[in-house]
Design a binder for these strands. Structure first.
Lengths: 138, 138
DNA sequence: ATTTCATTTGCAACTTTGTTGCATTTATAA
DNA sequence: TTATAAATGCAACAAAGTTGCAAATGAAAT
C-alpha cells in the first residue's frame, strides 16, 4: 500500500527510502516551516547530517519544498502546496513569521501584490515575509 | 576634521576606530548590500573575523545598517538611508536581488504595499525581496 | 602633551554548520 | 532472486560563528 508520502515521492521519481519518508512526513504533518536543525531534532538524530542535507536538496530540486527568506543565517523550508514544476515553481504566496512562537508559515491564500519597479529593473520572482503575531499567539 | 563616516559613528555614540571607519566606508561607498565574507575580502582581511562580527552587530543595534532576508544561509546588510531609531527602524522599502551580478540593493523609492492578512494575524513588519535582472545587467 | 580608564581589538581555542569522497547498504526493476 | 543504480553513513575536512581574556587603543580629564 502507498501512503500519501509515498505518492509524493513516486510522483517525483524519487525512490522511497526511510529517511525520505520520515522527513517528508515531518513537512506533511507540520503546518509551519522547518529548518535543518528542526529536522535533526524531530527525527531523533536518526539520520546522518549528510543524509538530511541531501534529502532536503533533492526535495528542493524536485519542487516538493521551497525555501523561505530569513534575515538570519538559517534556511527554512516549507512544503509546496501543490505540484510545483520541477525547478521553477510558483511560490507566489506570502509567508508569516510569528515573533512569539517563532513559527514560519505559508499564507497560501494571500497573494503577493505586484509592485512598480524603477525603469530598467526586470522582475522574475517576488518574495514577501510579514512578521508579527500569529493567529494562535494573540 | 570629521569625515562623513566619523559623523555617522559619533551620532550613534560609537567610538571612532580604524575597523569601524573602514567597514562603514564600505557601506557608504557601495551601492549594494554586503555580507560578512564580502567585508573580509574588501578590507583585505585586515581585521580579525571576530572584529567584523562585532562591528556589524553594533552597527545593527544602532540602526546604522539593516539586514535583508535571503533564501540561503547568508546574512546581508545594507546601510539605512537616514537615521533609523535605535533598535526598531523603518525599513519599509523593497529590496532587489539581481540574478546576473548577484548584487542586492535597496530600492528606497519603492514602498512595500500593504496586504490583507487572514483574521487573527497581527502584522508588525513587512519585508519584500524581488529578484530578477537589475538596471545595469539587462 | 600625558595620564587614566573604559572600550575595542586580536588571539586562541572552541562549537556548530556544511561539504566531499568512498565503501557499504538498500530500493527498484528485470 | 538477482543485478545494478541510487542512497546512506562514515570519516575527514572546510567554513562559519562564538567566547574568554590579555593587550592595545580612543576619549576625556588633567
Amino acid at each position: 500500500m502507498s501512503t500519501p508520502v509515498d505518492i509524493i515521492l513516486k510522483r517525483n521519481q524519487l525512490s522511497i527510502t526511510d529517511s525520505r519518508k520520515k522527513i517528508l512526513e515531518l513537512f506533511v504533518n507540520n503546518s509551519g516551516a522547518l529548518e535543518h536543525a528542526d529536522i535533526e531534532k524531530k527525527t531523533g538524530e536518526k539520520f546522518d547530517r549528510v543524509t538530511v542535507y541531501r534529502t532536503l536538496q533533492s526535495f528542493l530540486e524536485k519542487g516538493i519544498i521551497h525555501t523561505i527568506p530569513t534575515s538570519d543565517n538559517s534556511v527554512r523550508y516549507a512544503l509546496c502546496k501543490d505540484d510545483c514544476k520541477e525547478g521553477h515553481h510558483h511560490d507566489n504566496h506570502v509567508h508569516f513569521l510569528c515573533n512569539e512562537c517563532h513559527t514560519t508559515m505559508c499564507l497560501e491564500d494571500v497573494t503577493i501584490p505586484e509592485v512598480k519597479l524603477p525603469v530598467g529593473f526586470q522582475p522574475a520572482e517576488y518574495q514577501m515575509v510579514v512578521s508579527g503575531t500569529c493567529k494562535e499567539c494573540r
